[in-house]
């Protein structure tokens, strides 16, 4: 089992190295100018050179992502519970939630700036709005996934409705909830960057915008790489928490493979 995991990590690493090498070769062979497509070696060097600045701006973006995502979880999951338990709320609020989700966040950003200014709050709100939807939807689907027989079991054991929720419905929904959290965390990054594009003087989005205005394509790629690393890291962090909280689930999946 351990060997399997390290083998997988190795194959991922080799794939990435292979793709980088291909990119590098294309840049050399095609003698593509670096203001169009810089080779990965330049980008990596640039990341080391500007590590300090990348790190500082990353922290700012991460903070926005974290706050936005946390807000989405804290509001999204209870809302999903209400959606499942209240017919009125599910009928009246659900269309509104879907409607909000269909509005591109970029078009909401200027409004939010007018209301809340250029500060942290605007970015957190945009990250929240964009990561909120998958969390609500997946939690709702998960909470509704309890089959009739399990409900009958709960009833026959004379479980109270609170017990039915805690002992049956919620644990049954966990896999689906974590699915939503994984999508949500990556979307929170998108939200934070979008917000920084629109209005900011710090953060990775700002850094990329600055690089773009100076036609510093290498720096733009350095930011994109950093974002990729952050994205993979946060996604895996959620995955790690998922495995810790549901040992039974991943084991089941492995059996199925």
């Amino acid at each position: 089992m351990r060997l399997g995991r390290s083998m997988r990590a190795l194959s991922v690493a080799l794939t990435i190295i292979g793709l980088m090498a291909l990119w590098q070769i294309i840049c050399w062979a095609g003698s593509i100018p670096e203001y169009i497509l810089p080779p990965p070696s330049d980008i990596l060097l640039r990341m080391i050179e500007d590590a300090d600045s990348l790190y500082r701006h990353s922290l700012i973006t991460l903070w926005e992502v974290f706050l936005g995502f946390a807000m989405a979880v804290v509001i999204g999951i209870p809302l999903a519970i209400l959606l499942v338990y209240s017919r009125y709320i599910s009928q009246s609020f659900f269309p509104i939630i879907v409607g909000i989700h269909c509005v591109p966040m970029v078009s909401l950003a200027p409004l939010l700036i007018i209301w809340f200014g250029f500060g942290l709050l605007t970015k957190v709100l945009i990250a929240f709005l964009i990561s909120f939807f998958p969390i609500v939807i997946n939690t709702t689907v998960g909470l509704r996934s309890m089959e009739k027989e399990m409900l009958n079991l709960a009833k026959s054991l004379r479980a109270s409705s609170a017990q039915t929720f805690l002992y049956f419905r919620l644990p049954k929904a966990l896999p689906s909830i974590f699915g939503g959290l994984k999508v949500g965390i990556t979307l929170a990054i998108v939200g934070a960057i979008v917000a920084e594009f629109v209005a900011s003087e710090k953060g990775l989005g700002y850094l990329q915008l600055m690089a773009n205005s100076q036609l510093d394509v290498t720096m733009e790629f350095a930011v994109i790489f950093t974002l990729g690393i952050i994205g993979i890291g946060l996604f895996n962090l959620v995955g790690w928490i998922e495995r810790l909280s549901m040992p039974w689930y991943h084991a089941t999946r492995k059996e199925a493979d």
Partner: peptide, 18 residues
């Protein structure tokens, strides 16, 4: 209503996987 002293075995075992 479900009474104390009644126990049911369903066709599906409905074990809680967690």
């Amino acid at each position: 209503k479900p009474q104390e002293g009644n126990a049911i075995v369903f066709q599906k075992d409905v074990l809680l996987e967690w």
